[in-house]
Amino acid sequence: MPENTPVKRRKFQFFDFIEKPMELFIRICGWSSIIGIATIFVFIFKEAGPMVPRLDWVEFFTSSRWIPNPAPGNPASYGALALIVGTFGTTFIALIIAVPVGLGAAVYIGEFATGKVKETLKVVIELLAAIPSIVWGFIGLMVLGPLVKSIFTAAPGSAWSKIMVTLQLASADGGTTQGTNLLTGGIILALMSVPVIVSLSEDALRAVPDNFREASLALGANTWETVRRVLFPAARNGLLAACLLGMGRAIGETMAVLLATGHSNRIPEALTDPVRTMTATIAAEMGECVQGDDHYRVLFILGIVLFVITCAVNVAGDLIIKGVKKANKA
């Protein structure tokens, strides 16, 4: 071999040139989500700020007198109790429906279904998740609402009406007068949060090691007993997190409840009373109020309340999931 073979150097390329600036840029983008959440916080507080010390907080949480447009003899008052009850009421109904259905569907898809059936069901769940919230609202208003109305309408004093009143399904004045109400909103929200619950619970069930299943089957348990006595306890935290994240979605939902809950600011007495949620109030009233006045700022305060609740729910759910992943690795 000759002594002085010149070392062949690779040509300095364009990408070598931009490597350092690009890495800096990647680092900045990496922080983008922190920047995003911080700016959301800052700007919502900036708009709500001047009203925070002035707002009667006791009234805000305990009264349902929501009078944003004061008239003579009718002073402005911002009592959000009915809105809070509306938000949690619809969410509660949604969860009562969505949790059993979601868990059942997840168990079926994860443990029982095979082949084409499994793939088809997964695609359907995905499509359910893809339908935009405004379309769900439209379905509540135009398809489900009339159905609910026709089922729960009864002449005052008739037998059906008496049954409904005793079961708290309708107000004392007999049947419901409108199809968009607590029940309709709850059903729509349930259909919207089921995909979240199904896909996360299925992940949680899949995360249970296979030797748990094999051990249980070897002891003579059948599939259902394995699911109930082995998989459910083992995946408990993951399933809980799935329900929490489904709840987060239901609380924050806006357009669907704006169209499907009837938009009436009072505390519901029966299942088919119209209600109104915090999210729908912001969406409906932000367009009407003057930028910078009290009403405008109170709507931002509602936004802060929602932001804090959903952040807490989501972060709790996520921490539970992360904890489960770590425990499984160890």
Binding site: I34, I44, E47, G248, G252, E253, V315
Partner: peptide, 29 residues
């Protein structure tokens, strides 16, 4: 870990709160 939590919280922020944020940050500021 902080970035991970930020991503989760950002995913959980209700759409209407994003609307309020857009109004405050992009339209007004």
């Amino acid at each position: 870990r902080t970035i991970g939590i930020a991503v989760t919280s950002l995913a959980g922020v209700p759409s209407i709160v994003h609307g309020l944020f857009g109004l405050g940050a992009f339209v007004l500021a």
